[in-house]
């Protein structure tokens, strides 16, 4: 009995000490620790595998860095009908302008040379915030995973999604290439946010055999690969905007027997420039095979300027 009474007295004293001490401790929580009093480990998603979850890195932000101090969210003001949201919200329903949402990320990431040209870039100018593509509170940020990146881009780029479903395409649906292999969505000096400074320079990172320069060059090739190719996908191999000879005849005058398209004509002419050879096989490229340019220097061979050898 005496032991029980003693234990009760000790317990009460302890409660007396801990109670007010505990509440004083809770009232003193500041910064991210205050957030964690409600958003504890059970409530927070696992980001342990992400850069933001690697707390040994002194640069890693805390809740306040991105969401702001949010005092009214942390402690609901008396009389407020509902608990106010944090200062900065990044969800779809957020009323915060895109530039302010991105500013939270840029406070650290602006120093990254790969994001140097973000300001004024197409995505910035179109009010696409960082949080539109990136999921920060998730170990699996879909846009940074090669297997799922294209899905995120297709949220806005529907035309490219449809083109990728066509039979002649870069291996994006197969997961062997991703959009960011050619594009830098964070800003670039090239057109259409291409990684290099021009369409051609971007293509040459994998297709350097087309760079030349060549002895015999083809104007539209040196100017822009997309004059002839539609790089996201086509029904015409190899990713042509239009099949030959229609594509070629957008610039070139004809030289064929029969100037209409026909298959299986009973009499197609005796010349090699007949309807069948012009519309089937590789069409104009049956003969004009070096269409990207030829380095053959033979000054006595008059077929060379026509990209035939």
């Amino acid at each position: 009995m005496q032991i029980k009474r003693s234990m009760a007295i000790v317990g009460l004293c302890l409660a007396g000490l801990l109670g007010p001490f505990g509440s004083v401790q809770a009232a003193d929580e500041v910064g991210a620790k205050l957030c964690q009093t409600c958003h504890d480990e059970d409530d927070r998603p696992d980001i342990s595998k992400t850069a933001h979850g690697f707390t040994a890195d002194a640069r890693v932000p805390d809740c306040i860095s991105c969401h702001g101090p949010s005092p009214t969210h942390a402690k609901k003001p008396p009389g407020a009908p509902t608990q106010p949201k944090p200062d900065r919200m990044f969800t779809k329903k957020s009323a915060l302008p895109a530039s302010e949402r991105s500013a939270a990320c840029l406070s650290c990431h602006v120093n990254d040379p790969k994001r140097a040209l973000w300001a004024g870039s197409q995505h910035d100018a179109a009010d696409v915030a960082c949080s539109a593509c990136h999921k920060i509170h998730d170990n699996q940020d879909k846009v940074r995973d090669r297997a799922t990146q294209a899905e995120v881009c297709y949220t806005c780029h529907k035309e490219q999604r449809a083109q990728m479903n066509r039979p002649s395409h870069h291996p994006v649906p197969e997961g062997k290439m991703v959009c960011s292999d050619c594009h830098n969505p964070h800003g670039s000096a090239g057109p259409k946010l291409l990684k290099r400074d021009s369409v051609n320079d971007t293509c040459y990172t994998c297709h350097a055999e087309k760079r030349g320069p060549f002895v015999h060059q083809h104007d539209p090739v040196t100017e822009d690969c997309t004059n002839c190719h539609t790089v996201h996908g086509s029904v015409v191999s190899p990713m042509l905007k239009m099949r030959a000879p229609l594509l070629c005849q957008q610039c070139h005058t004809p030289h064929a027997t029969g100037k209409v398209g026909a298959i299986g004509a009973p009499s197609v002419g005796t010349s090699g420039k007949n309807t069948t050879n012009l519309w089937q096989g590789r069409s104009c490229l049956n003969c004009h095979t070096q269409i990207h340019g030829s380095n053959n220097p033979s000054s006595t061979n008059s077929t060379l300027p026509l990209f035939m050898r």
Partner: peptide, 26 residues
Amino acid sequence: RLFGIGMNCPSVIAVPQCGANTGWAL
């Protein structure tokens, strides 16, 4: 990769090579 050559004779650009004879090949 798929590639090829072709030529048609006679040809105004390849007169000495083709000669006067006709003939073509892909």
